[in-house]
Write a protein that binds this DNA or RNA. Structure first.
Lengths: 334, 334
DNA sequence: CCCATCTTCTGCAACGATGTATGCCAGGAA
DNA sequence: TTCCTGGCATACATCGTTGCAGAAGATGGG
């Protein structure tokens, strides 16, 4: 049996409640008493029972993080940073992988997962704003990413459109005229794919380069899809002098396929991505991409969520945070 | 306020305990009673309070996973798989990043983290078997990786030595004679670095190739270290015709540095890694490496841990599981 | 010197579930 | 009829903590 507050109280010769008061930094305790309690705690090796504390207080000091797949490098890096930011403020992060399955996303909002956490960092990929609003409990929820743009929700995001435009502009400035886009979802205008595609189109327009739908390759955001999409373009005989992978793994998959087929990067085809995962710097050739301020996203989303949880932030409208971005010009698209 | 078992009991016209009995599949309940309770549960939208259940039962249905850094691709993929395997059996995984800091590893063994979980999957990097044994509570602990090989502990591992030997043999069979090793920790003979280096040495011996300490480059297991280590070798004028990165990110970092400097891979220098992370297949050139059976490691470590937790496995000695491996011969070292 | 206020500490109830012990009823055995 | 057994439901205590209310002693102003 573990040591309880009762044991400590007995050892220190005070009431159980006084022990509780010492632990919770209650103001009015004589230094001598406090010392005796602390000595007893140290001597017995007492550790507070978090489960009991949670039951009583209704707080778990855990944050939920819902994302599609932790093994995707961008999410892995984000999760790692979020966990560190949370740990600094005394919280833990419990991760749930949705695999982009609607049911899992829905259950994360109201099921046991929600119960275990004081607040949620949510990256919805499938379900829409109404589904979320309908299941919105009393616990704070901060959205990550840009599938949902709704004034009701708190949101921490990146400058997708601007960044994609800047990256595309860079490709065009280098003389590229036919920039293929890998990973688009043309039917959606929101979400990272939609916004990044918008940025791309705006940059084209700005430069007076016509938009060619043949250059747009829709696919899921995985490495092998990036490779397959480029293969399909080549096989179809589509001509292009640059590839914009809507995220880094797509771009890297695409680059791999190009190199396999003897297409020189960047001489014949430039390649650019989005996310600046660690791998991008060390790819061969190294990958030109957008660094979306992940550090800032992690810090600010934790800060916002904790402000909500601890009642600092009371704006009933959603707070929207946009992190800054940086172009990382590397060998694949100088 | 959330719906409690009491509310359900009232609605169904039974006692609170009967509701509990229905939820826990108690044998002797009249079908009619059971039905009434279930209807009430459905109607009120009752959900069991996991915190209360944990307090009463002493179980959390969470597993702890301690690793150094979730953003490392190997760990990210492993964590993802472990979480899926756990989810299938009704458990969640709570991750703790140790950053290879001794205090964090120690606290994971006995602090609040331990309390929150029913069992631990532990990848110790710093602390030794005695430190672990001294802090071993009653809750099950399964070690992952091979820093610790101790008959007292359960352990799920990969065939480091054999696999490294097989990989090295492959390089030698292709005619390579000076194989540099990146990421060794020559002072340690246990742990992944030590075992993999052993395998390397055995393969050399087997082939009658002399061991040259000048080819051994110690460093931390990060991409940039792999690049730096190769840079240092080249700058020192050390001659080599192959590089064995003790894990994939090291090999990829090394390969990047080689290519930057105009060294052709694999023509001049072959490169091989260890782990077979997703990225290895799509690197350019694609990376020859060892697939250490991560799927199997994930499945079996969860199975073993849950057997311990649920009392199926009662062997008081540690159970040791070794997953199989597969050589993945790709372009970087055909 | 008395009452009000402040400081310090205490006891009780409650958070929401489960384990143990037990009660009650029906049916079969004695 | 009486006793026993098995099926079914219940009451109470309990897990370890914190909120609330209040008691007892110290302090201070008039």
């Amino acid at each position: 049996m573990a040591v309880t507050m009762n044991d400590v109280a007995r050892a220190a010769g005070v009431s159980l409640k006084t022990v509780s008061n010492v632990l919770n930094d209650y103001e009015f305790i004589r230094p001598a008493t406090k010392q005796r309690v602390q000595d007893a705690i140290a001597e017995l090796g007492y550790e507070a029972n978090l489960t009991a504390r949670s039951l009583r207080s209704g707080k778990t000091r855990m944050l939920g993080l819902v994302l599609s797949d932790l093994s995707a490098p961008y999410y892995a890096e984000l999760a790692s940073r979020l966990m560190k930011a949370a740990a600094q403020r005394g919280y833990r992060v419990l991760v749930e992988q949705s695999d982009a399955v609607a049911d899992v996303e829905l259950n994360a909002l109201q099921g046991p997962f929600r119960q275990l956490t004081d607040g949620l960092l949510f990256t919805p990929l499938i379900i829409d704003a109404e589904a979320i609003a309908a299941r919105l409990g009393k616990k704070p929820l901060v959205m990550l990413g840009e599938h949902i743009l709704d004034p009701r929700f708190d949101l921490v995001t990146m400058k997708n459109e601007e960044a994609a435009a800047a990256l595309t502009a860079h490709l065009l400035a280098a003389g590229r005229r036919r920039v293929a886009v890998i990973g688009a979802r043309p039917e959606e205008s929101t979400g990272s794919p939609g916004l990044r595609l918008n940025g791309y189109r705006k940059a084209l327009e700005q430069a007076g380069v016509p938009f060619d739908p043949a250059l747009i390759a829709p696919c899921e955001w995985r490495r092998d899809n990036g490779a397959a999409a480029v293969a399909a373009l080549l096989d179809r005989g589509v001509k292009f002098d640059a590839v914009f992978g809507l995220n880094d793994v797509l771009a890297l998959g695409a680059m791999h396929e190009l190199l396999i087929r003897g297409v020189r990067v960047p001489d014949e085809v430039a390649v650019a991505g989005f996310d600046d995962i660690d791998e991008a710097r060390f790819a061969s050739p190294s990958l030109t991409t957008v660094s979306p301020g992940m550090e800032e996203i992690a810090e600010r989303s934790i800060a916002l969520l904790l402000d909500r949880i601890e009642g600092q932030e009371t704006n009933s409208q959603g707070v929207h945070v946009e992190a800054g971005f940086q172009l990382k010009i590397r060998e694949s698209a100088p």
